[in-house]
Design a protein around this nucleic acid. Structure first.
Lengths: 147, 147
DNA sequence: TATTATCTGCGAATCGTTATCACTTAAGAT
DNA sequence: ATCTTAAGTGATAACGATTCGCAGATAATA
């Protein structure tokens, strides 16, 4: 998809505008964030890069994700068990459906979420700034192969 | 509220039925879980009990919450930054509204969530088992006292 | 090419949580 | 009432994901 290339360049440009240096390590990390649809983990990103960049440090991956998060260009899906995943394509809050067996993460289309948000704001008198909605279940693949 | 007493006795009974011993430490922890409306943290529970039970160990609080979680009588609200909170009154999934300033956690009433769940199940072909919905924002109190 | 602020890699530090282990105790049996 | 013993407790060590600190490297600008 050409969208991924645009996304990649858009993130890099934003980093440049912010006065950050564009290092090979940073390029590699942004490339994976922009191009992957599978919500990779830090470990996963590190492993992928290490194949053709053996000196890549895990700390560098963490540092760069922190940076990219701070400019709002990646969405962190933090789970309490530490299995955090990252979405560099849609860095804004959106619902996720997670398979508890194969850990696949899918983005469903849900229109009615905005209504819900307004409903909550009215009822609680909060100024709602952000949200997080996850559904946990079993995907059709894992359902099929139940032994 | 008398509901809290019922809730307390219901949890204790379930523990008895499961063959667990009813220790003073366990009683104290269940009492707080059943009676508090404010979604306390482990540290908070430990601190409250330590006042009149100075030898209470933090490990005991963790162990008991793990146990009570395993019998489905407390809902864990895990946050990736480690600030986990517990709800012993409504141990089933339900939405939360969290103030990012004072960390208050409120339970809103939302009817339309079930529709959303069905919508997702149809669209993604997942068997949905569980969910988590958090809204983050600023409560009316914190809004008022913005300096 | 020189300068310098930023970045990287490595390993140590951190922090919430869990595991270990010797000692205690709740609860059923005698 | 006392005995027995599996389960529970407290103190502390271990753990694992993430962050920090520092010395050396390197992009970016002049």
């Amino acid at each position: 998809m050409a969208d991924h290339k645009k996304r990649f360049e858009s993130i890099i440009q934003k980093l440049r505008d912010n006065g950050q240096k564009i290092t090979p390590q940073r390029l590699a990390i942004v490339k994976i964030l922009a191009k992957s649809e599978d919500h990779p983990s830090v470990e996963n990103i590190h492993a992928r890069i290490k194949k053709d960049f053996p000196t890549m440090s895990l700390a560098t991956v963490y540092r760069n994700i922190l940076l990219i998060k701070s400019i709002g260009e990646v969405l962190e899906l933090g789970f309490p068990d530490g299995s955090n995943r990252y979405d560099g394509n849609k860095p804004y809050p959106h619902p996720h459906v997670i398979c508890i067996k194969c850990k696949k993460v899918v983005d469903p289309e849900l229109d009615s979420l905005d209504d819900l948000k307004n409903e909550v704001a009215v009822e609680t008198n909060f100024k709602i700034l952000n949200h997080r909605l996850d559904f946990f279940g079993i995907c059709s693949n894992c359902m099929a192969e139940k032994v």
